[in-house]
Computed example of a mutant assay.
Amino acid sequence: MEVVIAPAEELAKLAADTIEAKLRENPAAVLGLATGSSPLKVYDELARRHAEDGLSFAEAKAFMLDEYVGIDADHPERYRNVIETEIASRVDFAPGAVNGPDGLAEDLVAACADYERAIESAGGVDVQLLGIGTDGHIAFNEPGSSLASRTRIKTLTAQTREDNARFFEDDLDQVPQHCLTQGLATIMSAKHLVLLATGKGKAEAVHQLVEGPISAMWPGTIMQMHPHATVLVDEAAASRLQLGQYYRQTFASKPEWQGL
């Protein structure tokens, strides 16, 4: 696991560099898209590069991490709509290239199985963007999630619903209680994981993610087992890291050609 500590703007550029490099190498790459506040600067940077530098997504495919269950199709906080607003409509993805779990399906179990098959049929995710919750969840894999889990329905914790209430007019009653989410094993099947975290509120989760024991109580810790995982954090989110100075030294001395 590589840890990079830098200002948020620089972190966004590093993540965008990784996605751009993959698309330049393979225009038909498969990208994993996350919602929440963590990837927004990355999407802004990718949209800028598309508009100004001709970065194309025309042959690429994308898969979302998760989706609320039962939220209206036109609700602005439905994750499919969020992704459309934040990135898909700002670049040149082909129609139907961006996929997400179907939180409105009549048979949610079948929808989850279909989603797993769709990812596999696409050849798997090449670069997966991730954020992390204050309780250590990645995607909607809440504390206690099986480390071998696949896409499934989950019940959101009170903490996650409280954290997400800001997207629902600070009205907790509007926040859905259930979601469909890629499982931890599904996420771990991606070839490169790129997690972004900023702010002091994420400091303990980042500390556990990077330096704590692997545990279902901190689901993100499974990333320690991934052969190519990158954790991008600002100074505040890195404030609990015991080996912070070592991570800075390692990145500063890294060969430029190596990338993330």
Rank of each mutant, 00 (worst) to 15 (best):
residue 1 M to W: 13
residue 4 V to P: 05
residue 11 L to H: 02
residue 21 A to M: 01
residue 22 K to A: 11
residue 22 K to C: 09
residue 24 R to L: 13
residue 24 R to T: 14
residue 27 P to L: 07
residue 28 A to P: 03
residue 31 L to V: 11
residue 32 G to C: 04
residue 34 A to S: 05
residue 36 G to S: 07
residue 36 G to A: 08
residue 36 G to N: 04
residue 37 S to Q: 14
residue 38 S to E: 06
residue 38 S to D: 03
residue 39 P to V: 00
residue 47 A to R: 00
residue 53 D to K: 00
residue 67 E to N: 12
residue 67 E to F: 13
residue 68 Y to Q: 06
residue 68 Y to T: 09
residue 68 Y to A: 06
residue 72 D to L: 13
residue 75 H to K: 03
residue 76 P to T: 02
residue 77 E to N: 08
residue 77 E to K: 04
residue 78 R to V: 10
residue 78 R to A: 04
residue 79 Y to V: 09
residue 83 I to C: 07
residue 84 E to D: 08
residue 86 E to A: 08
residue 90 R to F: 00
residue 99 N to G: 06
residue 99 N to K: 14
residue 100 G to F: 10
residue 100 G to Q: 04
residue 103 G to V: 05
residue 111 A to G: 05
residue 115 Y to E: 01
residue 120 E to T: 15
residue 124 G to M: 13
residue 125 V to A: 09
residue 131 G to E: 08
residue 135 D to F: 09
residue 146 S to M: 11
residue 149 S to G: 07
residue 152 R to H: 10
residue 152 R to S: 04
residue 154 K to A: 15
residue 156 L to F: 14
residue 157 T to C: 08
residue 159 Q to L: 15
residue 172 L to R: 14
residue 173 D to F: 12
residue 173 D to C: 12
residue 179 C to Y: 10
residue 180 L to V: 11
residue 180 L to Y: 10
residue 181 T to Y: 10
residue 181 T to G: 04
residue 184 L to D: 02
residue 186 T to F: 06
residue 187 I to L: 15
residue 191 K to E: 14
residue 194 V to P: 13
residue 198 T to W: 12
residue 199 G to L: 07
residue 202 K to W: 15
residue 204 E to N: 12
residue 205 A to K: 02
residue 206 V to L: 10
residue 208 Q to T: 12
residue 212 G to I: 08
residue 213 P to Y: 01
residue 219 P to A: 09
residue 221 T to P: 01
residue 222 I to K: 02
residue 223 M to I: 11
residue 224 Q to V: 05
residue 224 Q to M: 03
residue 226 H to K: 05
residue 231 V to L: 08
residue 237 A to L: 01
residue 237 A to S: 02
residue 238 A to L: 02
residue 249 Q to T: 13
residue 253 S to T: 07
residue 254 K to Y: 00
residue 254 K to S: 03
residue 256 E to M: 05
residue 256 E to K: 00
residue 259 G to E: 08
